[in-house]
Simulated assay, not measured.
Amino acid sequence: MVEGVEWALHSCLNMTWLEPGRAVSAARLAAFYGLPTAYLNKQLQALVRAGILSSTPGPRGGFRLARPPEEITLLDVVTAIEGPEEAFRCEQLLRQGPGGSADVDYRQACLISQAMRRADLAWRRELAGQTLAGLRASVEGHYPDTPRNTRDRFALS
Score class of each variant (00 low, 15 high):
Ser25Arg: 06
Phe154Ser: 02
Ala31Phe: 02
Glu19Pro: 01
Ala31Ile: 02
Ala46Val: 02
Gly134Glu: 06
Gly34Ser: 07
Gln43Cys: 08
Val78Ala: 07
Pro59Arg: 11
Thr16Pro: 01
Met15His: 10
Ala46His: 00
Met116Gly: 01
Gly61Met: 02
Arg136Leu: 04
Ala115Arg: 12
Ser157Ala: 15
Gly58Phe: 06
Tyr39Ile: 13
Ser157Asn: 14
Arg125Pro: 04
Phe32Asn: 03
Asn149Pro: 00
Glu71Gln: 02
Gly58Pro: 05
Leu47Trp: 03
Leu18His: 01
Arg22Thr: 14
Ala30Gln: 11
Ser113Pro: 07
Asp145Arg: 13
Glu70Cys: 03
Leu111Asn: 13
Leu75Ala: 01
Val77Asp: 06
Cys90Tyr: 11
Phe154Thr: 00
Pro144Ala: 03
Leu53Gly: 11
Ile112Glu: 09
Trp123Lys: 10
Ala38His: 11
Leu53Arg: 10
Leu18Glu: 12
Val5Met: 13
Arg49Leu: 08
Ala119Ser: 00
Glu126Asp: 10
Tyr143Val: 04
Pro20Gln: 14
Asp103Trp: 12
Ser101Asn: 11
Arg117Tyr: 03
Glu70His: 06
Ala23Pro: 00
Cys12Gln: 01
Glu82Tyr: 03
Ala133Gln: 13
Asp145Leu: 15
Gln108Asn: 10
Ala38Tyr: 13
Arg107Tyr: 09
Gln92Phe: 12
Glu91Lys: 04
Leu40His: 01
Arg136Trp: 00
Ala66Trp: 07
Gly83Thr: 05
Arg117Leu: 02
Cys110Pro: 01
Thr79Val: 13
Gly34Lys: 12
Glu3Gln: 10
Pro69Ala: 09
Ile52His: 04
Glu71Thr: 09
Val77Gly: 08
Gly141Tyr: 12
Asn149Leu: 12
Glu82Arg: 08
Pro57Glu: 15
Ala137Ile: 01
Arg153Gln: 08
Ala80Gly: 06
Gly62Arg: 04
Gln114Glu: 13
Gly99Cys: 06
Leu75Gln: 00
Arg148Phe: 09
Asn41Gln: 06
Gln130Glu: 11
Arg49Ser: 05
